[in-house]
Nucleic acid binder design. Structure first.
Lengths: 93, 93, 93, 93
DNA sequence: TCGCCTGATAGTTGCC
DNA sequence: GGCAACTATCAGGCGA
């Protein structure tokens, strides 16, 4: 009934604004970094590199960095799923 | 055909490594920032905000206004065309 | 000033309807197939399989079927990009 | 410890293979249908339609359809609870 | 420049 | 009710 915003409302509004602005700030930084990536790729092309291949190389390395080891772990699980959990591994991540 | 890498090859290899590492560094920062975004959304949910709505708000703010209006106009047009084949407009042909 | 749709409008509307309905038909089939997949996974779980592992196995096989060979091709490109296109390949699936 | 697979193991392996192959068959069909969708969108663009808006239209119709389905399901539920589920459903859309 | 293609991001659904 | 996987959408780069 009040013509003035309640405390809870204004607090919520403050929080909302804070959330939105923080997200937008992060997104802005992300956009900048993506521009940086684009610049590097442009420069690379200027130096005669095949950008498509570069992207592929980076994608493969990205995979290798977090998934190859994972695929080994999956192999474990696979074998386990088949009933033979005989693998002894000492190393982890 | 030399069995040794030529100078141009090794220079290219250096450049390649440089490119790849710079890209990867930027990507790493992007990933971190995206983690930051996820954290904020999680926190927001914890404070009772509807994340889906938050995303919508941010998307709308991000979108260019004129473009948005135009798309809504087109959307109207299509929906109208599907709902009523009998469009009453004054001009045509 | 006509109260009737022009020919061009009704033609566009017909095309629009056709497009939308064809898409929707395809999407319906896709949804059915996805339900089928969900059923199989549910059944598999009921038989003691770890669904997460199953998904991973299938993903790996999917990769292997179209990407392992591709990664070899990429290696070719990679080496070529470095100036040494000396690869001789004799094997192929 | 047998060097041969136990019966349970081989049965599990059979089941596993069956599951994987059935999923892969379904996925293959899904992929084909998605290619079909892409074709239609391409054709639509060629005829001057705005693909982004088309997607929006279809999404809205899909939503409407889902809501109507849910309402009908609830109606079914109520009628069933009353003992008279005399609904003849053949109609959709 | 336009259309295609791939990689990134957002939204949805199903499980725990 | 949170979380993780999957799907669909979107954006940017590349080639014709």
């Amino acid at each position: 009934m009040s013509g003035y915003p309640s405390n809870t409302e204004s607090i919520a509004a403050d929080q909302l604004l804070s959330i939105v602005e923080r997200i937008e700030r992060l997104q802005e930084e992300i956009d900048d970094l993506n521009v940086g990536k684009a610049d590097i790729y442009r420069e690379a092309r200027g130096n005669g590199f095949d950008v498509k291949v570069l992207r592929k190389v980076i994608a493969i390395r990205r995979q290798d960095h977090a998934e190859r080891m994972e695929q080994e772990a999956i192999l474990d699980l696979y074998l386990t799923a088949l009933g033979s959990h005989v693998r002894a591994r000492g190393d982890d991540e």
